[in-house]
Amino acid sequence: MSIGNSPEDERPFEDDREDALPSIGRALQQARIAAGLTVDDVSNATRVRIAIVHAIEADDFSPCGGDVYARGHIRNLAKAVHLDPEPLIARFSAERGGAPAPTPAAPLFEAERIRPERRGPNWTAAMVAAIVAVVGFVGFTAFKGGDDNGARDQVADSTTPSASASVSETPKKDGKPVDPKPEPSDSAIAAAPQDKVTVQVSAADGRSWISAKDHNGRLLFDGLLKQGESKTFQDSSKINLVLGDAGAIQLYVNGKKIEDDFQPGAVERLTYTKGDPQVG
């Protein structure tokens, strides 16, 4: 079967048994053909790669990267071709020995405590500090220049200028000019940079396939994020995400943690902009 083929070029497999129940892959393929959709159409609608769609329709779930991802792909493909996904997922679970066991809670909390200690340098905070330093230097230079002009005017207008008076007008602390440079606050660090959207994706509770695109649709990343790994994406206006196993993912958007209750095995499509999150 060639990629991008038309539904008319595909024919259902022949089966001598009239009451034979089609396999999961064959049921999805037959429903796709009946809906007049190509593999490209289904791939574009679900964000599931073409090679994986072909493999699932051939009942080969190994390219999915695990049973959790396979269930998510089956659910999305079934919805795209107008099938009820629950019977197919139930059959898949029965063939694979039942639904996956829940992940113990204790290791998750331990990973949550350990992970912040392994974080790298906070480049956002460093950038804000550098900006504040530049603004402070410019402000101090302007303040000092204005004071010097005032001292020169006093010398020109006064018949008996006093050196001590002109010097006393310049505010000093411990014999040095006062530096009006402000200290950066935590809220300023969390909000910067305000002219971009920054999304950090961490596989905190397991591995997950993720895809990220910028506002132009350009692919920033498409692959498997292993447990403990993280990726950071930045764009001028918008980041589009697809999470293969959203329950394993922890998100930070513009410096704020996203508290959405993502379920294990759920496939989520998310979009974040410069103003997100509104609350959190």
Rank of each mutant, 00 (worst) to 15 (best):
Q30T: 03
A266F: 11
Q278A: 15
G206L: 10
P12K: 06
G206Y: 11
W123I: 13
A190E: 15
S211H: 12
D214E: 02
G265K: 05
K176G: 06
T141R: 12
A188M: 13
P63A: 00
I189F: 11
L251T: 04
S2G: 09
W209K: 11
C64F: 00
T273E: 14
P85F: 00
V132A: 09
S208H: 08
T103L: 13
N216P: 05
G228Y: 06
N44Y: 05
T273M: 10
F140P: 05
K172I: 13
S236I: 10
E183L: 13
S43H: 00
P87R: 01
D147H: 11
R11E: 14
V178D: 09
Q234F: 01
N44M: 02
P107Q: 01
A31C: 03
L251V: 07
R71T: 07
A130M: 11
R118G: 11
K144E: 15
S6G: 08
T38V: 03
D9Q: 13
G120E: 08
F137M: 15
K231W: 04
D84I: 09
A34M: 04
F92H: 04
S185N: 05
A151C: 01
G275P: 03
D9I: 07
Q29P: 03
A165S: 08
D40K: 04
S164Y: 08
D153Q: 10
F13S: 15
E86A: 12
V199C: 06
G136R: 08
A266R: 11
G97N: 03
E268Y: 12
H54M: 03
I131P: 00
L83S: 00
G4M: 02
R49V: 12
G36A: 06
Q194Y: 07
G120Q: 08
Q227R: 15
G4A: 06
S158N: 15
N122S: 09
G72E: 04
I258P: 03
L108A: 09
F61N: 01
G25E: 03
T124Q: 12
Q200N: 14
T160H: 11
F13V: 15
D235Q: 01
F92R: 01
A246T: 07
E10P: 02
D186I: 09
R71D: 05
K274Q: 13
R118D: 07
A58R: 02
A35R: 13
M127K: 11
S164E: 13
A35E: 12
V253I: 13
